[in-house]
């Protein structure tokens, strides 16, 4: 139990920034460049952590609450979700609701921290973030319901349990592949990736997530970046478990499989980012409504 907890946290805290590095590297390779070193995000975090703070004169404690909550929430959410075949250290019946609402909490404070600066650009980012999540949230819930329908419990541990392997081979495989797509879209939206948001853009008007953290600096910015990396790993853990439901029976093998899956997701994100353009803003809600309908369809398929 305690060992599992430490393994979980160690995997999360150590490997999360690496995924960002892999994405950047993949994009660089597609662009024909060598690109930043794989460990660049670790260097960035270390550098930011040593720096001082710059605060806007309008800000209050809420401005710092954003980074704190943004870091703590993925940390706590990670404890609820199994990493591949490694079971979640904290698990109880109905924890999937807590999982979803924890990310709601982090969104609440990120949006407030953005509005605390009084900048209209950051307000814009906050609006987009909270509005898009209105459409992403039903998708997540319906996808989790598909999993709940296939298992006999309501905790993420049972939802993403060992029955997935047999479920893939049964009639439910179609539903599972649909929700895999839906959850991947949600992963892209929630982590502000192309085609929904461009983390590397330099025009404030077109940003979503990046514009919300424009005024953060030093250790606070480090916390935000680290929190974002953790969030990505936690959300893609859901995908990895769905796509690679195998168990090796040896904990080191399970860890290897899980990390391989995470790296695969990161490479896939890099490929998508290299091969697609950002969607026009009004198109984003349409895509998200599409995935919501897709997830309802997946649900109807397993009801049969």
């Amino acid at each position: 139990m305690i060992g599992g907890l430490f393994l979980h946290l160690a995997l999360l805290l150590l490997f999360a920034p690496l995924l960002l590095g892999i994405i950047t590297k993949t994009k660089a390779l597609f662009g024909g460049r060598i690109g930043a070193p794989l460990l660049q995000s670790y260097f960035d975090l270390a550098r930011l952590w040593r720096k001082g703070f710059v605060f806007s004169r309008t800000t209050t404690w809420v401005f710092l609450a954003g980074p704190v909550v943004g870091l703590v929430v993925p940390l706590l959410a990670a404890l609820l979700i199994p990493f591949g075949a490694l079971p979640a250290p904290v698990s109880f019946e109905g924890d999937l609701i807590l999982f979803v609402y924890l990310f709601g909490l982090s969104r609440f404070f990120t949006a407030l921290a953005a509005l605390d600066t009084g900048s209209s650009f950051e307000g814009m980012g906050a609006v987009r973030e909270v509005t898009f999540s209105c459409l992403a949230e039903p998708t997540v819930l319906f996808s989790l319901l598909v999993l709940a329908r296939l298992s006999d419990g309501l905790s993420l541990n049972t939802l993403l349990g060992s029955h997935l392997l047999t479920a893939w081979q049964s009639e439910a495989g179609a539903s599972l592949s649909l929700i895999l797509v839906c959850l991947f879209v949600v992963l892209l939206v929630e982590n502000s990736r192309i085609p929904f948001d461009d983390p590397n853009t330099h025009l404030e008007l077109t940003m979503i997530h990046e514009v919300m953290v424009l005024d953060h600096s030093g250790p606070a910015l480090a916390m935000i970046l680290y929190g974002a990396a953790l969030k990505m790993m936690v959300l893609s853990a859901l995908l990895v478990k769905l796509a690679l439901p195998w168990q090796t029976g040896w904990w080191l093998g399970d860890v290897g499989l899980f990390l391989a899956g995470q790296i695969g997701v990161a490479v896939l994100i890099g490929v998508i980012e290299s091969s697609m353009a950002r969607l026009r803003l009004p198109r984003v809600p349409q895509v998200l409504i599409g995935t919501s309908l897709l997830s309802i369809f997946a649900l109807v398929l397993v009801l049969r």
């Binding site: 703070f53 710059v54 605060f55 806007s56 004169r57 250790p219």
Partner: peptide, 23 residues
Amino acid sequence: LTAGLLFVIRRHRPLAQGTTWRC
């Protein structure tokens, strides 16, 4: 705990005040 950590760090780091970034 995390907020306390940030609070402690803030006391030991240089602080600067400025206006909000408005492009």
